[in-house]
Each structure stands twice: as C-alpha cells, then as structure tokens.
Design a protein around this nucleic acid. Structure first.
Lengths: 247, 247
DNA sequence: GCCCTTCGTTGATCCAGATCAGCGACGTCC
DNA sequence: GGACGTCGCTGATCTGGATCAACGAAGGGC
C-alpha cells in the first residue's frame, strides 16, 4: 500500500451517502465485482470512479443512447425494462445493491433503466473499465461470470413468461425475493418489496389486477402476510415453493 | 453435459460431413469464434477438437448434467429448452451453423439441447478451452461478446413472451428467421423453417393450433407462401415488419 | 400397394386472465 | 382540515388464445 491512510479528505465533511463509496467501507464491496480485486487494484479503480444519486422514478439509462458509463449499484432498487411503441412494457429484471449495471461490450443498451427507490451508483467510464479488463484477466472473468448468471436467470424467466400460470408466476416472484435474502432453512422469511404492483405485473407479464388478486389469495391461504406498504412476510415458504412449480 | 452415444456406422464408409471439419475448409470458420484466431492458434485448437453427428430428435445436453464439453455447430438446427415437471416446455433459443453451444463458466447447464435436424458439432473439452481462453484474451473477449449478444436476444424475447399478441409473436418469429438470412434490401426472402409447428409454439409461448391459424392468416394476407414442407417465402417483408410491432 | 403413425389445418367451445369500473386507504399540498 | 392524486383491492364482464375434436396429407415400413 503506497497511499497514506491519513490523506486529508474534504469529502469527510459531507454527510452524503456518497461517503460510503470509499472502497474500504463500501457496503457492497464483497458482493460486487470489486471482490476479485486486490487492494492496489481497488485503489486504481476507485480513482476512476464517481458516485451519483437518483431519485425514485428517475431514468438512469435511455434506450439506444450510447452508453459511456457502467456502474455498481451501491444501494436501492432499479428496474430494467423494454417498451413497445404503444407503451406496453416488459421489465426484464431488477437490480439491487451489489449488482452490476451495464453491458460491457455492446456499444448500445437497448433497454431502459429506472430508479424504483432512491438509488446510489458507483460509476465507471466504460472505456477505462475495459482497459482494466485487458490488464486484469480476473476482472474480465468475473464480469463474464456475471453475464452468464444474468443470462441463466433470463432463460428461467422466459419459461415463466411463456408457460407458467398466474399463480405460479406470482409465487415465483416471491421466491425470487426470498432467494435474495438467503435463509433457506427457515419456513418464514421477511422480504422487502420496493416495487409497485404495476411493476410486478410488468415483470410477470400480467396485469396489476391479476397480481393483486393472486397476492390476496396467497394471504387467504396463509402463505403471506403484509407488514406495512412495502414489507411482506412469507409465513409458509414450503407452500410457496409448491405453488411456484419449481424448475 | 453428456454427449449422447449414437451411430455404430464405421465412419470411413460414409461421405462423412465430419471431413469438412478441417479448419481450412470449415464452412463456419468465419462465423464461429474461430474467426478471431490466427492460423497457428487454429491449428492448436483443431488438435483438441473432435466432431460428432446427431440425428433429429436426439438429446445433446441433459439438464443439470455436469457439462464437460462445449461445441461449435457445424451444421443443422438445435433447440435449447427448459421443462416444467408436468411437461410444459419453453424453447429458449435455436442454434444454427456457426453458433456456439455451451455455457463457458457455469459448471451446470440448466437447459436441454436437442437436435431438430441432423446436426454436426465440433466439440472441445471445456477445461482445455478455458486454458486457451486464459492464454488468448481475444478468444475470451469473443466468447464474452457472444454471451452478451445471446443475453440481448433473450431480453428481446422476454418482451415478446410477456407482452406481444399471437399475431405479433408469429410475425416476430419469421422476422427472426429472415434476419438470419440477411438480404435486408429485398421485400421477398426465402427462409428455411426446419422446426415443427409444436416447436414454434413452444418458442413463442403459444399452442400449435394458434401458430397454425396465424400462419394461415399470414398466407391469406399474402405475406407468406409456403414452398414444400420446410420452406417459406416471405413475399411482403414490409407487411411482416408492420405486424411484428418492432421494438 | 396398404396400414399406421405423425404432422398440420380447421372448427367448436371454454376459460384464465384482461378489461372496465368503483371504492377505500393513504399522503401530501395548501 | 379539506381537496386531490395515487395506489391497491375487489367485483362484473369480456375476449384472445387454449382446449377439445375431427380430418386430410405426407411419409415409412413391409
């Protein structure tokens, strides 16, 4: 380590969430691709990063806009979606803290990204990150793995969109949320549901009304209970798995 | 992945397509990832490859089997698909000559692959190809690009499965086939349709009957005509694009 | 040639989920 | 505190595509 830990930082005077971006104290350090980097690599990367905050509903990436930047999600929830000319929408995925936003190699990103909650990103210039990929094969390997995992999830979702019933879709949605939390052992899990019913519908290829009815039914079957506006507790995870059809 | 055992025929007696696998005369040489390799790299790669033929309907990859091999498709059509326990099927993609089969970095391949027509593969041991990726960054980059392109197509298909009408889906299917042929200029294109109506249905999230009715309608509207069992001529590409909704 | 199976087409009917509509629970802005 | 807007829930009705069913055409084996 060449850098002096005592280096003065004007930043330390701000209370902004951006403060958390200092890699050493970054909350997503171990979840993000940064996990594969050494301390000195991390310092180089940090030097070329910047942080930015987005408010709920704010557009982060516009379709077909040439993308110059990619990012790690430091916090918040992002929806990725595609549109048809008449406004029909399909959400292709959600990103949470630690996820990577941005296509590494296609110059274009034919998908919109919008902040669902308040979102903080750790941004990198795409070209400069690509240089780092050339220099650090383990970085490229990690991002490759990330893309493969994303593809796997997309293929699973194609099965859901093409062949599952409404009940199975909604159950699969909550299973996806519980998987993120971990705790595979317990039969009860608290999950946060930051997105609206309309967003869930656009993710599942259903309407808001159908989603609402299915959730009501899950509550009637004592599989879910709600805790406030955006909190849900799965109280019968096994039952939920049974309904989700599995795959 | 476990490649299926098959064919006892002594190879020397057939005018085997496998002969074409010698890289210098390989028909997919420029379409496959081999295009980024130098002559000497190609020779090394060829030394570790083997070719294999599959008959229509033969399973190439079984779900959750540990994958040991990856391959280039030398010829024929492959369907990739996922199944639900009760038999419902979703085709996640088709592979044609020049396409790459196999996930580079996930140990598992949670998808089935089946030969639609007779298929010839150029196989590589996964671990040995990974070594080559380490040695040749341009190879890894190429396969990364391939994965990114596959992901893009999967996301587009999610929009189709979640939000498009039956008419739009079938139109999009034929547009996908025409795109592969090229010839963007002409308003008429001949395309081969190697897969069955049932496979088209499982690709589009519809039933065979609905696909059949939609195709009949496209013929009535003078957008398509059929030439034999597996040949279709698009005679109004513009009209087809209009119906496909685009995105 | 003939039987038999598989595949695609078309018609009749059904139903899961969409659409249309109303209402209550919150939040927030004056 | 009142007016308004947004969001989610529920009921009534409608409909696109599924399901059920029949049939013709095209191989393929013998």
């Amino acid at each position: 380590m060449r850098m002096n830990e005592m280096t003065a930082e004007p930043e330390c005077l701000r209370l902004t969430p951006a403060r958390a971006s200092r890699c050493a104290v970054c909350g997503v350090r171990e979840a993000a691709f940064c996990a594969v980097l050494s301390t000195s690599e991390l310092q180089q990367l940090h030097a070329m990063s910047s942080q930015k905050l987005f408010e709920p509903g704010e557009l982060i990436v516009e379709e077909d806009a040439a993308v110059r930047q990619v990012a790690n999600v430091l916090g918040g929830t992002i929806k990725l979606f595609k549109l048809l000319p008449d406004g029909r929408q399909q959400i292709t995925g959600f990103l949470f803290a630690g996820d990577f936003l941005g296509p590494m190699l296609s110059g274009e990103y034919a998908t919109f990204a919008e902040a669902v909650t308040q979102v903080e990103l750790c941004l990198f210039d795409q070209d400069r990150l690509r240089e780092r990929m050339d220099a650090w094969p383990h970085l490229e390997r990690r991002l490759f793995e990330d893309a493969t995992a994303t593809l796997d999830r997309a293929l699973d979702w194609m099965l859901l969109l093409g062949r599952k019933t409404a009940t199975e879709r909604v159950a699969s949605f909550f299973l996806m949320l519980t998987d993120r939390v971990g705790e595979a052992s317990s039969n009860r899990v608290m999950v946060e549901v930051p997105m609206s019913r309309a967003d869930i519908a656009d993710y599942l290829g259903l309407t808001m009304e159908t989603v609402s009815r299915q959730i009501s039914q899950l509550k009637r079957q004592a599989i879910l209970t709600s805790h406030g506006a955006h909190g849900v507790e799965v109280i019968d995870l096994r039952g939920l798995r049974r309904l989700g059809g599995s795959d």
